[in-house]
Amino acid sequence: MNRRELLKMIALTTGTAMIGGKSLFAFSDAGQSGHPFSSRDVERLDELAETILPRTDTPGAKDAGVGEFMALFVSDCYTPSEREVFYFGLAQLEARSRAAYERDFIALSGEQRLELVNELDREAMAHAQQQARRKQPTPAEALTAETQTAQNQTAETQSSQEHADSEKALPHYFTMMKQLTLFGFFTSEVGATEVLRYEAVPGRYEGCAPYNGEPAWAT
């Protein structure tokens, strides 16, 4: 089934399809190596990620190097306009922190950080819900649209249309940060093997195994 399964990337807790990669068509400005984020930026992202997925009796986002992963993913996989939103978001994180607490985000207490990030999460969810209300055609509408576009669709018009659509629907910056935190964490070795469960070579398939509260399979 795997070949035919839609790669169900994360619509996750953010209410938005996975940003970056093939979910959005875009132009490239390839040629960058590494990423342009400063070590201070990576530290900020790490703290933000740790607020979303903290270390408990199991490892947290920082243990999985999520800040560094976010910086790389945004640099290599995001479109230029998505990157803009993300950079803006990073600046906003600082600005909001200073406005509310007169401190850098990194210098906030755990409680303050949680308060600020919760606020951003609410804003991002509201933004995503608003966007979701605008799209979502019914299957019948989708089939009708499919027939209409098929009449004169060329590869070029299709590609430019998708690009235009993706530009219109830019998500809230915190949605990006939260998605990348979850994605970066649960697909990391630490997240997959120490928080989730991982079996490299299962050797068999059992379709009706008893379940007693163990962690979910990583893959």
Partner: peptide, 26 residues
Amino acid sequence: SREGWDREIAELNIGADLKQALSQPG
């Protein structure tokens, strides 16, 4: 299949509870 960490949990936003919930199958 059972849902994994990429599912929607509307009532949980951030923090330890979110991590705990997403580490269990949905």
